[in-house]
Design a protein around this nucleic acid. Sequence first.
DNA 1: TACTATTCCGACTGGAGCAGTTGGGTATTG
DNA 2: CAATACCCAACTGCTCCAGTCGGAATAGTA
Lengths: 152, 152
Amino acid sequence: MLISQKCQYGLRAIFELARRGGSEPVSVAEIARVQAIPPRFLEIILGQLKQAGYVVSRRGAQGGYLLARDPADIAVGEIIQAIQGAIGPVHCLVESAGPECPLFGDCVFLPMWERARTAISGVFDDTTFADLVERAKQKERDPAASSAAWGI
Amino acid sequence: MLISQKCQYGLRAIFELARRGGSEPVSVAEIARVQAIPPRFLEIILGQLKQAGYVVSRRGAQGGYLLARDPADIAVGEIIQAIQGAIGPVHCLVESAGPECPLFGDCVFLPMWERARTAISGVFDDTTFADLVERAKQKERDPAASSAAWGI
DNA sequence: TACTATTCCGACTGGAGCAGTTGGGTATTG
DNA sequence: CAATACCCAACTGCTCCAGTCGGAATAGTA
């Protein structure tokens, strides 16, 4: 499943919150500025993320958003799930119990789709925001190198 | 990237051609009937697959389509590529050299997207249509079991 | 030759989802 | 009370998907 722009904004927002210690709230405007996200659109996204329990908000002056959990305890896959629903290469896999393929409950491709989904969610569920912050700080210190350990 | 309906039709069509030996051409109408695909839509798909060199056509009565290669030599990933273009979890990865993220050439998420793409295309490129036909025949003989060897 | 089966081609359409925008309303701080 | 911020819902423009439609070209069959 293609990761939507909206979803990427959400990931960047969570990343931004994770990067700051979490001592004081960060406003939508501030996150939007730093991460180059349309501010009003970000409002919607953070609202969704709040309802899903990943951030908490503080209203009024000096308000903003705070991470509700330890960055090491938030996987990228969770945020994707919260914003754009379950991931998977095909529809009949993500909307389980739907009408699926009209006659192929025994679809030849199903095992392959299943393996693809496992592979992709493995990547997303194994990456936490603590990892990403760590990686960003590492890169700050040493702009070169630092990619070997990430397998790319 | 989500595998479109069109693409799944294409895969089913190639599978159907692979399942029959390839001795004589199969018409669009026949494939459409057996695989439950809208016939006129399948025309378009097979046209695309023909142009990409995966099938050859024979016009006129008794005409139809034939596989252009050995099923063992056609990977699922190739067909997906031919029908809906390069796969990948995010846009900035599939349309390389595009404007990408506005300011993040050093996007923190890029290595993860890259790993996701590798994981998913690994699955699709390692599955050939000979594998799928084999699996289908195996299931025909023994409807139960036969899934253990496929890792699901 | 006439008929029929079949591929081939381009244009068209209805619907859905994405990427935001707009206009307000409500709580909190100073 | 005014400024700062979150909160909520509706609305819009756009693109892509999934398919349809009409007809033209081609090849085998009677």
